[in-house]
Design a protein around this nucleic acid. Structure first.
Lengths: 231, 231
DNA sequence: CGCGGCTTTGATGTTCATCAAGTAAAGTGG
DNA sequence: CCACTTTACTTGATGAACATCAAAGCCGCG
């Protein structure tokens, strides 16, 4: 269930400027009183498909996946959320229950901000509302882009795309430890595990990446980018 | 470029309750002063990829498609918007320019609400902001669902899905005139035109639908639903 | 030591894109 | 109104991309 953490005051949270920069001190302290921060170990379930949505989730640290069972032995990963990301923002205004589960794929600190508190703040602070709208707009763009990448790229292109995504957007480094299994990679970009392995092996043989278990090093990012664009 | 229409006052617009129900009379009349309604004939371009986003688009009547060139001889249709839909809401807060073109696929009346006017109204009316957030949230859910349908269904399933979508969500009837060509059908659900035709012919031979040019009648909706779910 | 999960590689089959060719429908100019 | 062109639609044949099936290696864990 995750363990309650002593959470930093929102006012001194290092990340506050990215999130709440249009909230004044007193508004920020209101938010502060209706949030709780939890720690989740790698693999731990944060919430289950069908649970009621009572809070906005903010990823303080770590990495979590949003996923959905689609049959007995098949899942799909909808997206991966990283620090600074809001989760649930997509659906809190249109749904009462989660249509996906959330699981930590790295040790994570997750902030829960009570839904009514959040909504009250939006209703009373127009600038904050605009910030949230902007944030949501970006999220939607991301979904569209992911849809586009899936439908327009072949297997090699998709693998290249996601490896670059990990390197550039999540770890900001060409060497990183994949937080997901081969199977989860497949679930994320709509492939089969065997083909994920095959394509990555090809990239290794072509000298584009080095593989050591879950440690990946991208040795030829330009080529990878080209494959992503071409595919 | 579309022709300016005498537009109804927002206050008496038959659809206002669905859109602007949290705006008071004076706020509504402010919106009213910064909107213009245009008529676009079938096939007419509403805006072009790259154009600056100056307004929120509201579909008063008709049907429009959002589409994007992806290569010399390939386009992709991102979505189809119907009456009551906002367009641009997705991107107006995160982008300055359209990343898609918009074309009328039926004779349409389109309302343009000036962006700054709209934003000013959000900032000063918390309840209106929440309405917009809800609307945007729904749009995002739709995109996710479309992504899901694409990645999890085979060709037959995708055709079944989109035919049911036209019947249930757009025309509210099992008999309707397809507003798109076979090629556009393909662009909408990531197939090739030849296969759209093949699959639809199969459905016709199996007695699931009747085809008369662009007129489609779904004679066995249950079977079609089953194909959509199974595929 | 042996079991189960994750990974890897090879062989085979299915689905779908592509190519090619032809028909119908619809616009265009004389 | 008719030849002419163009555009949309349709069907069949072929090949490429990818899923599926099968089997074995690796590794941590009881």
């Amino acid at each position: 269930m995750g363990t309650l953490e002593k959470s930093p005051d929102c006012q001194i949270c290092a990340f506050k400027s990215l999130m709440f920069n249009s909230l004044k001190q007193d508004q920020l302290s209101k938010i502060n009183t209706c949030k709780e921060q939890f720690h989740f170990g790698k693999g731990e379930l944060v919430c289950r498909e069908g649970d009621p949505i009572n809070a906005i989730i903010y990823v303080h640290a770590g990495l979590i996946k949003l996923h959905k069972r689609i049959s007995e032995n098949q899942s799909q990963i909808i997206s991966i959320a990283k620090p600074f990301d809001f989760v649930g923002l997509i659906s809190v205004f249109s749904k009462t229950n989660y249509f996906y589960s959330i699981t930590a794929i790295e040790d994570s600190s997750i902030c829960f901000i009570a839904k009514d508190c959040f909504i009250r703040e939006i209703a009373s602070n127009g600038q904050f509302a605009l910030d949230i709208l902007t944030r949501m707009s970006k999220t939607n763009d991301d979904v569209l882009e992911a849809k586009f990448a899936l439908s327009s790229k072949n297997l090699r292109g998709r693998i290249a795309h996601i490896l670059l995504d990990f390197a550039n957007n999540i770890y900001k480094s060409n060497e990183f430890e994949l937080p997901v299994s081969r199977r989860e990679m497949a679930e994320l970009i709509d492939m089969r595990m065997e083909n994920v392995i095959r394509v990555m092996s090809e990239f290794r043989q072509d000298g584009i990446i080095k593989i050591n278990g879950h440690i990946i090093e991208i040795t030829n990012p330009n080529m990878l980018q080209k494959i992503s664009d071409m595919g």
